[in-house]
Design a protein around this nucleic acid. Sequence first.
DNA 1: GTGTTATTTCATGAATTGATGAAATACTGA
DNA 2: TCAGTATTTCATCAATTCATGAAATAACAC
Lengths: 129, 129
Amino acid sequence: MMNSEHHPVCSHTLAAIPGPPLADPESLERSARLFRALGDAPRLRILHLLLRGETCVSEIVTATAEKFSTISQRLRILRSEGLVRRRRDGSHVYYALADDHVKDLVFNALAHARELDSPTISQPQSEDD
Amino acid sequence: MMNSEHHPVCSHTLAAIPGPPLADPESLERSARLFRALGDAPRLRILHLLLRGETCVSEIVTATAEKFSTISQRLRILRSEGLVRRRRDGSHVYYALADDHVKDLVFNALAHARELDSPTISQPQSEDD
DNA sequence: GTGTTATTTCATGAATTGATGAAATACTGA
DNA sequence: TCAGTATTTCATCAATTCATGAAATAACAC
């Protein structure tokens, strides 16, 4: 009956890891947060809107037909990861993609997704599946 | 007293959006899922390990000191988004990054994160903050 | 000052995600 | 066949995330 979770006993495992590039937890965490901020369709939609250039919150609200507070929270998350910057002009606040790096990232991600065939769950990739 | 969530009344908002590139929900959703799979430090750690090349599950378990079922679930998620592929060899299953595109993505993300100064929450970016 | 529009913050509840033990499946070798 | 190792699947619980109404803050016009 084997008590479920056990230690592996195969040859190579016992030798632990030798090599060079071990990512520090700090960087892993930061990258993960960045990706997580991008990992939400409604937020991606905002970023996609911003590809057109600086846009005020009201415009985003209108364009997406969402609640003000909803958009505001999404923008807060995007901003906390440095994906967008904001600028106040009078009573309006304008948001824009933080830099060209973000612009490329969003653009490429969506372009890539548009090509691919929808792999909702488990697409076969090679022999074993 | 204003019933909280109201419609914006500023000039540009009423004109909705005119322009060209509207991302279809399908692509947005697909990109979001991809990013979400990357948006978890433990999963990123696995991908980072795989930068070294094909690795069997037991090795990953040993290298990360996690439970077998934990690693297996993480790999399942990575695989469901096409980030890794797997190959069975006898009783072992080897995982590898799906392609060079993924390799670059992971490599660049971590490199970029390593440079930056830790922006855990709200870093000032321009005039307005 | 008051009133109005624009935006953010706060608190809360609902939905999603992540880790895990247990059981199931897959392969190998006797 | 049985026994052992390797890995996945399933069910469950805890933690996180998301959307939202209400209240707060900010800017402007009067």
